[in-house]
Design a protein around this nucleic acid. Structure first.
Length: 569
RNA sequence: GGGCGAGUAGCUCAGUUGGUUAGAGCAGAGCGCUCAUAACGCUUUGGUCGCAGGUUCGAGUCCUGCCUCGCCUACCA
């Protein structure tokens, strides 16, 4: 038994996430968590909302709510949606928690003591009308380079030139449109990542097993022309973690908060602490502090590629710089983008499918299956309705669902509502078990290595074996001459169904639960080392209930309707 | 411009340290079965592995150049 800590990237609080966000972190993390639990490991699967920053404040203003209230509401919504997709978090916390405030301040204090934080004077735009400092991208003006009138303070979208907000001609606030902006001197804390560059480089260089995507992004940031840059970790906002040192206000930073990217990853630790304290224990230390047990933990992070720099560099820099015994990540699984019908998912243009809407139109397992079998592990993946329909109808309805239906209906019609007795297996059954055993081993290997697509293919291959078996065994014709043997075949088939309901659980947990319920199969168990065991463990008293269609097919007209509906504004 | 990745059957992809006739799923064709969500099973048609050179007894797999696509990053001389 191993201890495995799993975190998925924190979803930002300002809105409902789309399917790309789901497959980029929470969903594959859930597969891994479910698998590792099923294999008898001690798993802790943690996530939280990322709540601080200007976008959250603005979203709250738009909704005419206080930012606290807004975040609480959105946290609930995001939590419910995650539940809707059966994401098996052990704890879903919030970056705004008391624990995160304290830990963030603690890290800042340690970094300061160790000389990895410095105070830097900067000029920044202040909008009188909005009564706030404006982040670069919230300033609009004319691009000095190409004359485009709606260039943002960080970049001109027209000519792609990188800009400083002070470069803009006739700048205005994106929030209010106000032109009464002034440049104010303000002081910020910088994390001296550059001084930790070699340490980070050494650390990453040793990670031979990391995916190319993860390592190449990290290496690029370390070795580009300017090297690893120091980064500002404070902002002039009110919503966030107050800048404190040793628990007291940090002189000169009384009205500032830490920048989200600094406090967000710390929230992995803080959320674990929340979880722990809710249970009135100190378990969290065993997961996060190396000399208190965490050195035995295998820690895996899941995220989309845009988050990789923070997890390979910034957060480790925070941990290294603290000089304390915090657990570092052991493996980072990064994902590419999910595209929608060849283009990008777009919140503003309402293009693509969002998590709340997805749950309203199809069961979670449909989405899980398609997304996981097509996980953007090696390159961007394109979601199309045609592919979705085809994959679901073929894999879930025809291969798995129909196998279950044909066994069930036959058994009900010929033998009644009890699963027939008779474990007197013959050559064909042994052969079938052996065949699945081979696939099962591959499946386990892929899941261990977090190769989601490949694992899903092996799972499907195991489902196919069920249909092949029935075709060869032909219980419908055997029944005419040897009723006992027909019973044996059907019982064996039920054992296959039982097996599928166990091992498919990381991918389609809701359906697996439904299957077990419908057939009165035994409670969920750990996965066996050897499969023979599973083919022996149905009791004689299992009833089957409503043989409803488990996976209704997606019709052409449904598909066409959704294509139209989600094509964007 | 630089960095990274990808270009393999109609489509989506897999191809481990270079080794005998290049694989899977879907789609197509034929046959079989009738328990089943017209589902399933078996057989089968598709590939000069982006292009051109090179290394090697032998390259989809290594090297060089080029072309196309995607992502990241920078516009410095």
């Amino acid at each position: 038994m191993k201890k495995i800590l799993i975190t998925s990237a924190l979803p930002y609080i300002n809105g409902i996430k789309h399917l790309g966000n789901l497959i980029g972190s929470q969903l594959p993390a859930d597969v891994y968590a479910r698998y590792m639990r099923a294999r008898g490991n001690k798993v802790l699967f943690i996530c939280a909302t990322d709540e601080h920053g200007t976008p959250a404040e603005l979203a709250a203003i738009e909704k005419k709510e206080t930012v606290e209230k807004f975040c609480e509401k959105m946290w609930n919504i995001q939590k419910n949606i995650a539940d809707g997709f059966s994401i098996s978090f052990d704890y879903f916390g919030r970056s705004s928690s008391q624990q995160n405030h304290e830990l963030t301040q603690h890290f800042a204090t340690k970094l300061w003591e160790n000389g990895f934080i410095e105070e830097v004077n900067e000029n920044q735009f202040f909008s009188k009308e909005d009564n706030r400092y404006l982040p670069d991208r919230y300033i609009t003006g004319t691009c000095p380079s190409c004359g485009y009138e709606k260039a943002r303070g960080d970049q001109c979208e027209n000519c792609t030139k990188q800009l400083q907000p002070t470069d803009l001609i006739d700048p205005s606030s994106t929030i209010s449109g106000s032109r009464s902006l002034e440049i104010r001197k303000t002081k910020h804390l910088y994390l001296k990542q550059s001084e930790l560059k070699n340490k980070l480089d050494d650390w990453i260089s040793k990670k031979d097993d990391w995916p190319i995507l993860t390592k190449s992004i990290a290496k690029k940031w370390l070795h580009n022309k300017e090297g690893l840059k120091d980064r500002g970790i404070t902002r002039d906002l009110s919503w966030g973690v107050k800048v404190k040192k040793n628990g007291e206000a940090w002189k000169g930073f009384e009205n500032k908060v830490f920048y989200v990217w600094f406090d967000a990853p710390i929230a992995y630790i803080a959320a674990t602490k929340e979880w722990s304290e809710n249970n009135s224990n100190q378990e969290w230390k065993k997961w996060w502090i190396t000399d208190q047990g965490a050195d035995e933990v295998y820690y895996v992070q899941f995220m989309a590629k845009d988050n990789i720099p923070f997890h390979t560099l910034s957060f480790p820099a925070t941990i290294f710089g603290s000089g304390e015994n915090w657990k570092l990540v052991d493996y980072i699984k990064g994902f590419n983008w999910l595209l929608y019908e060849g283009g990008k998912f777009s919140t503003s243009e309402k293009r693509g499918i969002f998590m709340d809407v997805a749950l309203k139109i199809f069961p979670a397992d449909y989405w899980r299956w398609w997304l996981l079998t097509n996980a953007p592990e090696n390159s961007d993946t394109n979601f199309t309705w045609d592919s979705f329909q085809n994959t679901i109808n073929k894999d879930l309805a025809d291969v798995l669902g129909n196998f279950i239906t044909r066994v069930t209906k036959f058994s009900l019609a010929k033998f009644g509502s009890k699963i027939p007795k008779c474990n007197d297996y013959g050559v064909l059954e042994t052969k079938t078990i052996n065949e699945i055993e081979l696939l099962y081993e591959k499946y386990n290997n892929f899941l261990t290595k977090i190769e989601i697509r490949k694992a899903s293919q092996e799972l499907r291959n195991m489902w196919v074996v069920g249909n092949e078996y029935l075709q060869k065994a032909q219980p419908w014709s055997i029944l005419k001459k040897d009723k006992t043997k027909a019973k044996m075949i059907i019982r064996f088939s039920f054992h296959l169904i039982n097996l599928y309901s166990l091992i498919s659980e990381p991918f389609i947990p809701d359906s697996c639960e439904k299957i077990r319920k419908n057939f009165g199969l035994q409670k969920k168990t750990e996965w066996p080392e050897r499969l023979e065991k599973v083919f022996d463990n149905l009791t004689d008293e299992n009833d089957m209930h409503s043989p409803n269609i488990l996976f209704p097919k997606i019709t052409d007209s449904e598909k066409e309707g959704f294509k139209e509906k989600f094509s964007g504004s």
